[in-house]
Design a protein around this nucleic acid. Structure first.
Length: 988
DNA sequence: ACAGAAGCTTA
DNA sequence: GTAAGCTTCTGTT
């Protein structure tokens, strides 16, 4: 082996297990021999060996070997007898495949390497070292984290199932430490699968942070006393020996006395007949044909190889090689019945899109109006003068559809790959900027030649996007706005087809994504992103896409956006919805884009401390739960839990879920706990702790942006039926507050140094909106007087004076008030209050007697919805309920409740939208530098310099309290409570 | 690897 | 009883 040579080392054993679990089971047709993993293996190896067409890895191997584990017993068992002790036996239908895969390796003429006493990983480590020392490179075909310690400048990894390169940056991204520290990291975290102990309470996040702080494991153990957190320090001091043993266990041996040398691994051209003989015997028809073509072999002339199938565990019976479990048999039958070529799927899928013929014909009629779309007619712009000509053309036209292509759905992470423009239907172009050349080094190719330099292209584009006399049209503009903002470009004068569609059609079937809209309005099926850039394991990224295809896809997006705009924009005015779009949607786009870009500071230390506490609490509860249950089980499995509670322990079951399982919901468990059962209480507590840990303390740090060090959520403007926003990745609209434990998570949301967080929230905004809309005198009066609204309701209903009212009476009234907003039903109220349905029914009756205006409002809203198919907020936003006329009483009732709720929830959503749109200019006018960061439906969070807090609070309150005006003069005052503090918990 | 169910968090 | 999003487990591919 010499410089420039490249060794591929396939982790054969690792691949067998992954292929077995990831791929559908497959059985040889003639006798049912399980062969799924074998086929996966053969496909993968064949792909890797095909040098000239090997675009996946981007490198050509000169040397190739497949490495296997020899037996489960290795030198590590002498170090630590429990090593890999809790491994269970492999599945029955996998056993015969071990031998077949070795057989396959030989059929490929590849060295099949294994050695007694050593794991495959040690052999891989040794050969990787030998290749490096010989001046060559090595690529390990595996995704096992145990091998990541080997990654370096001349050693890479490649995950064939996800089609992903793993180099130094990927290791750092995944584990937070460079490859050379992986050993220390694994020594600390341990590995439950392999029974490597590690240090209890230390997970990957903590381990990475400790290694960052102390450098390496030895230093950490020597200076453990300096660790601030009491529990963590103690655990590390107490378990130093375990950490050292773990390190020995995870350290791969790079000096195994191997028998074969690298020269034995030189890759030979495939021996067609031998390989085909094996593939034929396996009955892999497609692969056989492919190999025959590539090696110019005549399939018919090759005889299928005769194979000796290794026996599965003899104790399981004589019919070795056949699937003997019922599940395996049925999948064998399925495979045989369907045939290999025919995809599964029944004839019933024809009806799945829910399209009725009448709707379809209407859509076709529309489509006929639209001109045909030809995706091969677009231009690909590769020089500056042409781009400048397109910019001039857009100026001339006064409008241009615009779209960006990037590397990520998250605009804060996305790198610009190109952009497209359209100036008239069918006239669209794509400007590639960051496409990579297919081939290159391990980490992907270099920049494709012939593209306009990003700086030049953006310099040409910037004046166009910032020109207020040219209308920019985009689909989901907020995304492109964030991307362009990050390149110093500010887009003004724009329309957003997604938002126009949302205003027109919120709640109708079908989403507001471009693919849906194109089909609905243009009758045109767009190219799919995944067909250009791949998806799942075949994802390669848009920057790897072929330029011709990329042009067709990207320019089509701009073309379709422009055509959609021409269809949709006029409809706004026609339906009287222009002001909803112009006041509540369009101006919010840059506001949200800024909030997303600002992000909020989250204190890692606080979260990691909480995470440790939660782990301890959950661990203790787990022990107690197992004690009480009398056995160990997966507490998180409702199925297993139900079996224990209602089966083995014989507790009375409450309700059932729709799949017929006993429900183990918190409500059921609370009831059992109230009857004095110990276990359900502990389950509820355990669930609380593990929920907080997994959803919040463990997940949030992963969202901290590497550069800004802040958390940037993403707001969806067109996701809800009512006009509310939604927040995702991460969802910052469901951060805990109800319990004191959960609340602690809010203390991790903090203001930057010298700043405070301001939280301002509307008090009872939905009830106030209801009081206005339904015009209820008592409610209006109570809000005008600032009286406790739930107490007032209770007083009216139960004739109890507000003074000295029992808390339970108020609680019931509060539940009823909420119920009204949700379109109350006796069933729901009974559930909420745990009272008989008759009693709930009686409450509702009394409520309507005292507040007849509410019943009138509900009835008229239902009637309006049935008549028109939609309901409206006080600002004219529509929410559609096309199924409110359903003949299914349950379904209809559900739609009625939703229709009653939508104007209330939606009006409140509109009000806070109006406040948000006005907020920035109001703050600027008052010369305040407060920055709006978050919205949580009825609350806004700001970050503001400490010195400006007092001046900021009244401005924020005033904007929010007056947000409905002048469009609507509410009959009820809005009240906003605002507070400032260092963290979100104290500010709220 | 992926989808659906169950469960839990918020307003 | 309204509106959302995320995690875990489980069965299927």
């Amino acid at each position: 082996m010499k410089k420039g040579d490249h060794l591929f080392l396939v982790d054969g054993s690792g691949y067998i297990f992954r292929a077995y679990h990831a791929l559908p089971p497959l059985n040889r047709k003639s006798d049912g021999l399980p062969t799924g993993a074998v086929l996966g293996f053969c496909n993968m190896v064949w792909k890797l060996m095909q040098d000239s067409r090997n675009t996946d890895v981007g490198i050509t191997p000169t040397h190739f070997a497949v490495i296997f584990d020899y037996s489960s017993k290795t030198f590590r068992n002498d170090l630590y007898p429990e090593y890999k002790a809790n491994r269970s036996a492999p599945p029955e239908d996998l056993i015969p495949q071990f031998g077949l895969i070795r057989e396959a390796t030989r059929a490929f003429d590849l060295p099949c390497i294994e050695m007694e006493g050593f794991e495959a990983d040690d052999l891989i480590a040794t050969y990787a070292r030998l290749a490096r020392e010989a001046g060559g490179d090595a690529t390990i075909i595996s995704s096992d984290k145990d091998l990541m310690q080997l990654v370096g400048p001349s050693v890479g990894m490649y995950d064939p199932m996800k089609d992903r390169q793993i180099g130094v940056p990927e290791v750092i991204e995944k584990w937070g430490v460079p490859p050379e520290k992986m050993i220390d990291l694994q020594a600390l975290t341990g590995d439950s699968v392999d029974n490597v102990p590690g240090v209890p309470g230390i997970g990957p996040k903590t381990a990475a942070q400790l290694l960052e702080q102390f450098g390496d494991l030895d230093t950490l153990l020597a200076r453990a006393s300096e660790i601030k957190q009491d529990k963590r320090r103690q655990s590390i001091i107490d378990n130093a020996d375990k950490a050292r043993i773990s390190r020995d266990l995870v350290t791969l041996k790079i000096d195994v006395p191997v028998k074969e040398g690298l020269d034995d691994f030189v890759l030979q051209p495939p021996n067609g007949p031998r390989l085909i003989g094996f593939l034929k015997a396996m009955e892999f028809t497609t692969l056989t044909r492919r190999v025959a073509e590539a090696t110019s072999t005549e399939v018919a002339e090759v005889e299928a190889a005769s194979l000796v199938i290794e026996r599965a565990d003899a104790a399981h019976g004589p019919d070795v090689g056949f699937p003997s479990t019922p599940a395996a048999r049925s999948s064998a039958a399925k495979a045989a019945g369907n045939g290999a070529a025919e995809p599964a799927g029944g004839p019933d899928s024809a009806n799945k899109d829910g399209t009725t013929p009448s709707l379809l014909s209407a859509l076709r009629a529309e489509a006929a109006v639209a001109e045909k779309i030809n995706v091969d007619a677009y231009s690909c712009i590769l020089d500056l003068p042409t781009l400048q000509a397109w910019v001039a053309e857009a100026r001339e036209a006064g409008l241009v559809a615009f779209d960006t292509e990037t590397t990520s759905l998250d605009p804060m992470q996305a790198e610009l790959i190109g952009f497209s423009l359209a100036t008239a239907p069918g006239r669209a172009a794509y400007v590639p900027l960051g496409h990579k050349s297919g081939r290159g080094d391990l980490l992907g190719g270099g920049l494709l030649e012939g593209q306009i330099p990003v700086r030049d292209a953006l310099a040409a584009l910037k004046p166009l996007l910032e020109d207020k006399s040219v209308l920019k049209i985009a689909q989901n503009l907020k995304y492109d706005l964030v991307v362009m903002n990050r390149h110093g470009i500010d887009v003004v004068s724009y329309d957003d087809t997604m938002l126009i569609s949302y205003v027109l059609d919120a709640g109708t079937t079908g989403g507001h994504g471009m693919d849906d809209l194109s089909e609905k309005w243009l009758g045109h099926k767009t190219l799919k992103f995944k067909d250009i850039a791949g998806s799942g394991k075949r994802f390669v990224g848009f920057d790897q896409a072929d330029l011709k295809q990329a042009t067709a896809y990207a320019a089509e997006d701009a073309d379709v956006t422009l055509r959609l705009w021409r269809v949709l924009k006029p409809r706004l005015a026609a339906k009287g919805l222009a002001s909803v779009y112009e006041r509540l949607e369009r101006p919010l786009v840059p506001v949200l884009a800024q909030m997303e870009q600002r992000g909020i500071s989250v204190d890692r230390q606080i979260l990691s401390r909480l995470s440790g506490e939660l782990a301890q609490g959950a661990g203790r509860l787990e022990d107690e739960i197992f004690q009480l249950a009398g056995s160990r089980f997966t507490i998180g499995s409702p199925k297993q839990l139900g079996d224990i509670l209602f089966g083995r322990m014989g507790l009375p079951g409450g309700s059932k879920t729709k799949t017929g399982q006993w429900s183990t919901s918190a409500q059921v468990l609370e009831e059992l706990a109230a009857e004095g059962h110990e276990l359900p209480r502990k389950i509820v507590d355990w669930r609380q702790l593990t929920k907080l840990k997994s959803t919040y303390t463990d997940a949030l740090p992963g969202y901290i942006h590497p550069e800004t060090k802040r958390v940037h959520t993403s707001y969806a403007m067109a996701a809800t039926s009512t006009g509310r926003l939604s927040s995702s990745e991460p969802n910052l609209q469901n951060i805990p507050i109800r319990t004191s434990e959960g609340r602690k998570i809010r203390t991790a949301f903090i203001a930057d140094k010298g700043n405070k967080l301001v939280s301002a929230d509307y008090s009872q905004i939905e009830l106030r909106v209801l009081a206005h809309m339904a015009d209820i005198p008592q409610l209006r009066q109570a809000f005008a007087d600032g009286i406790d609204i739930h107490a007032m309701t209770a007083s009216e209903m139960f004739s109890v004076p507000v003074e000295g009212m029992p808390s339970d009476v108020r609680r019931r009234a509060k539940a009823i008030n909420f119920g009204i907003i949700y379109g109350i039903s006796a069933f729901g109220l009974a559930n909420q209050l745990s009272i008989p349905r008759e009693e709930a029914s009686d409450y509702i009756k009394r409520y309507f007697e005292r507040f007849p205006g509410i019943r009138d409002y509900m009835d008229s809203t239902k009637a309006f919805a049935r008549e028109n198919g939609y309901v409206e907020t006080i600002f004219g936003r529509r929410a559609h309920y096309p199924e409110i006329r359903s003949s299914n009483p349950q379904h209809r009732a559900f739609n009625e409740r939703a229709a009653i709720n939508a104007p209330i929830q939606g009006s409140a959503a509109d009000i806070i939208r109006r406040a948000m749109v006005r907020m920035d200019s109001a703050l600027a006018e008052a010369k305040l530098s407060a920055r709006m960061l978050l919205q949580v439906h009825d609350e806004l969070i700001f970050e503001t310099p400490e010195g400006e807090v007092e001046a900021t609070l009244p401005v924020v309150r005033s904007v929010m309290e007056n947000a409905a005006m002048p469009a609507v003069n509410l009959a009820v005052p809005l009240q906003v409570d605002a507070r400032a503090a260092h963290n979100w918990d104290e500010a709220h």
